[in-house]
Simulated scan of single mutants.
Amino acid sequence: MPTITPVLGDIAQQDVDAVVNAANNGMRGGGGVDGAIHGAGGRAVLDDCVRRFPDGLATGDAGWTTAGELAARWVIHTVGPNLRAGERDRGLLEPCYRRALEVADELGARTVAFPLISAGAYGWPQREAALTAAYTIATTRTDVTDVRLVAFDDGALQSLRHATLQLIPLRILQGVRVLHRRGQQHARITAGVAPTGLHLRIQVWAQGSGTPAVKYTTGSETSFLDAEVTAATAPADIADLLENAEPALTRRVSDPDYARWYEGMLTTVERNLALPVASGEYFDSGPGWQIGDQRYPHPPDPA
């Protein structure tokens, strides 16, 4: 899993194996990121686009060309959805990141710089575009080791930092899923918002053990159980941290109803690009947990 780092800068000046270009369907250059990369890369980039993409490139697809005079070795071109033209489905934006990483793997690129695709002239809100970038990259299998998310201004950088910080609690939630798949289905979580409203809190514990919960708050940023957790931390490593911190979590306990509920809840989190928030304690009588704009049912009663 790659390290994901937001930076403020010029995508055309990134010294990486491959830079990603937010191209258009015609693949003959344009404005914004597209114009900057073609301008800095020189005529060789356009000539290679003409040769490799005689019929252009479909929205959501990706392909590569030489990088010409850029510091990078390759340019990976992808076409994001144009919200201003009515392409509002996030399912058109996510494949841009997945396909670009697939192309990077085919090329053997290990360091890749992405712009915030579709967040410029194509009109996608920065926050949603940033969350889509961070979550999609973090959940895509790839041999790329370092991803640089390049912001074009301070507002985009703030959105990217917020999005990448959300990957830490996501990894913890995925680590609990690993425990369930190992047979430790008594591992429980609840999630809530701090009184300030600024930070999400997650608690993990072993049902019926009587031991204190392991706690995390986004105010701790990448610190969890005396370790640094980032987007590059594998969920299995999170599961190991939890087992080492709480021996009760190492027991094999079957609770398939809760494990199925949890799998569905986490799938909803990954699909909605939003972390779960319980309306109260996990067993209260409210309508469920809030995940983005969706309510997800409360977990079943303990086995």
Rank of each mutant, 00 (worst) to 15 (best):
G219A: 15
W74A: 12
P95E: 07
R181L: 08
H186L: 01
R188E: 02
T196G: 13
E94G: 04
D226C: 07
D293Y: 15
D237N: 05
Q174E: 15
R90K: 09
A44M: 12
A40R: 15
F152S: 07
F152T: 02
G63T: 10
Q13S: 15
V50G: 08
A71V: 00
A104G: 07
Q203V: 01
F114A: 10
F53V: 05
S223F: 08
N82L: 03
R43D: 14
Q158N: 08
P195S: 06
F114W: 10
I37W: 08
G32L: 12
G288K: 12
T136E: 06
P300H: 04
G280Y: 11
F152C: 03
Y97L: 02
Y282M: 04
S285T: 10
Q290C: 07
D17K: 00
L92C: 05
T3I: 01
L92K: 15
T132C: 15
G197N: 09
D89P: 08
A227C: 10
I172F: 11
A191M: 07
G29A: 03
L167D: 07
G175R: 01
A129Q: 01
T136Q: 11
W205A: 09
R52W: 04
R181G: 09
G63V: 04
G286M: 04
V277Q: 12
G41A: 06
L275I: 07
G108T: 07
R52I: 06
Q203M: 09
R90S: 06
C96L: 02
G63N: 10
L198N: 14
G292Y: 13
R260Q: 13
A62C: 06
A191P: 02
D240T: 15
G56K: 00
P81H: 02
V79G: 13
L179T: 05
G288H: 12
D15P: 03
G86C: 01
D146W: 02
W74M: 09
W261F: 06
G219N: 13
P169E: 07
D237P: 00
L167N: 11
N21D: 11
V33A: 13
R90F: 09
D55M: 12
A134C: 10
H199A: 11
F283D: 15
H180W: 13
Y262R: 02
T3M: 00
L107Y: 03
R127Y: 01
T164W: 08
L160W: 02
S285H: 08
G35V: 05
R51P: 00
G60F: 08
D154Y: 00
T132I: 14
C49R: 10
G219R: 14
S285F: 05
L198H: 14
